[in-house]
Amino acid sequence: MTPAGGWAIDVAGLNKSFGTKRVVQDFSIQVAEGRICGFLGPNGSGKTTTLRMLCGLLTPDSGSGTCLGFDIIRQAEAIKCQTGYMTQKFSLYEDLTIAENLQFTARVYGLDDRARRIGEALERLGLQARRDQLTGTLSGGWKQRLALAAATLHEPKLLLLDEPTAGVDPKARRDFWDEIHELAGRGLTVLVSTHYMDEAERCHEIAYISYGKLIARGTAQEVIARSQLVTFHGEGPEIGKLVHELSGKPGVETVAPFGAALHVSGTDRAALEAAITPWRHAPYRWSEVDPTLEDVFIQLMGQAEDNFA
């Protein structure tokens, strides 16, 4: 079913190999216009490669589809004009000033009224007073916000963000996400890769990719529900020591300490309950809880076969 605004991203069967490594396998995804889609998966799972294929930086070995209605193979140049891409590694010129970087971007995209646009962008960022500062001297959080400003200066319709908040403090991350939501509110479609669960929960929908394959898709609630995961929350003195005893037992798929508590999860309820039975007495207290997104992802990671091994 096609949404009212159409698909901003609609690709199917994308494959990409580097040498003998199949980094992305039969990847298909549809993202409706104006949505924020979180792109999750372990390191090396093919997130960056997928983002690069979507914005024309890499040519897929096979597969087809459209971004913003343009063919990703034949009309990559048209996609580039309406897409903002923020790289994982900071990629503005550190030896240029903040204003000079924005001017470069504005000129590259052939924007009119450059002074006004740059002035507005700096105003939004609160960097007006530091416009002549060298970009390399900015802190990590500011660099990311500036990179976002540069990636959105040409008012793209699609924004691809590759781990935009890695290594950024929580306050700056929150500001960053407020900006992303504001942009999405104006109709921008955002595909953002991240490792942070709180960020995943701020997305309209998520896509989980592992070893180059899309293995979960939907809203956070849908992904949790579909996992059919049962999670027990255990508390008690030195409960952390149970990690070793529980892991590997039949029915126990993941065991993870959460501060003074323990999350034990599995899809087979009976086996899981049997596994924790030896400790189901005082002073330990157990209760069944809704699995968190993190529980689900850790389980998904464990399930995915490692085709790179």
């Binding site: 914005c55 024309g56 930086l57 140049e77 580039k80 004009c81 897409t83 891409y85 790289t87 590694k89 990629s91 503005l92 971007t105 590259v108 995209y109 052939g110």
Partner: peptide
């Protein structure tokens, strides 16, 4: 270069 290539 990555940013540069993503531009038109």
């Amino acid at each position: 270069m990555e940013s540069l290539l993503a531009t038109p």
